[in-house]
């Protein structure tokens, strides 16, 4: 006798079966079920509709749903694969899969490239890099003169733009990250290794056995 799965499917928009999501991600079925607990918590923090809205992700990441954060916005945009203004459960699990310690490094590098390609031109451009540095300084209440910001951006851009054509392409980004692996440190969440310990309530009621 199962507990909730079939009922959840009907009631929650965008809900996908854990067995399907586990087959496509580094997570086990139990871990996907534990992630559902986290998803539910996040998706009811502002609007209780079983979907994660931008304000809800903003609130979880920056503790302030009203203060816009460029980077939280970018994370939302990448998680919202269908581009319908909300993050559904399947999108949440598949996107978090990239942050799993066992996910391929190439996937993490590719994700950061898309994250920093603000205008989605297929390149990280100098203006985008400067915009992100300014946003970070603003977020951190740090004051640096425009000259210093320009110098930091110039130096970094020069190091990464190996072809010297004024933009960083995916190949250059891969090379740059290989030389500076700390750039993808935040792309690995150790929490995901023991997500069932963080959210054990669902695991107690699961009806599906993990195959591994």
């Amino acid at each position: 006798m199962g507990c909730y799965p079939s009922k959840r499917t009907k009631e929650t928009p965008g809900y996908e079966e854990p067995t399907v999501l586990a087959a496509e991600t580094p997570f086990t079925v139990s871990e996907v079920e534990a992630l559902y607990e986290l998803f539910k918590k996040l998706s009811r923090s502002v609007i209780d509709d079983g979907l994660i809205h931008k304000e809800e992700l903003q609130l979880a990441l920056s503790r302030n749903k009203n203060r816009r954060n460029l980077f939280a916005d970018r994370i939302f945009d990448l998680f919202d694969v269908k581009r319908n203004g909300v993050i559904e459960f399947g999108e949440f699990v598949r996107s978090l899969g990239v942050f799993h310690p066992n996910a391929p490094v190439e996937d993490k590098i590719h994700f950061t490239f898309r994250l920093y390609d603000l205008r989605q031109t297929g390149f990280i451009e100098r203006e985008e890099l400067k915009e992100m540095v300014v946003a970070l300084l603003h977020e951190s209440d740090l004051l640096l003169s425009d000259d210093v910001v320009e110098t930091i951006v110039d130096k970094t851009f020069c190091d990464a733009d190996l072809k010297g054509d004024g933009k960083i392409d995916p190949e250059e980004w891969m090379e740059f990250v290989s030389k500076n692996p700390s750039l993808i440190k935040n792309m690995t969440l150790p929490y995901l290794m023991d997500i069932t310990l963080a959210f054990p309530s669902f695991v107690l009621s699961t009806e599906v056995e993990d195959s591994e």
């Binding site: 990441l61 460029l70 540095v133 640096l144 740059f176």
Partner: peptide, 26 residues
């Protein structure tokens, strides 16, 4: 002069908005 030698992407990666571990904080 320390900030001038900083890697801009490294600076950006410290953003709270990119710190997804906060999703797991109770």
């Amino acid at each position: 002069m320390a900030p001038v030698t900083m890697n801009a992407f490294e600076l950006i990666s410290t953003s709270q908005g990119l710190n997804l571990s906060s999703l797991f904080e109770k």
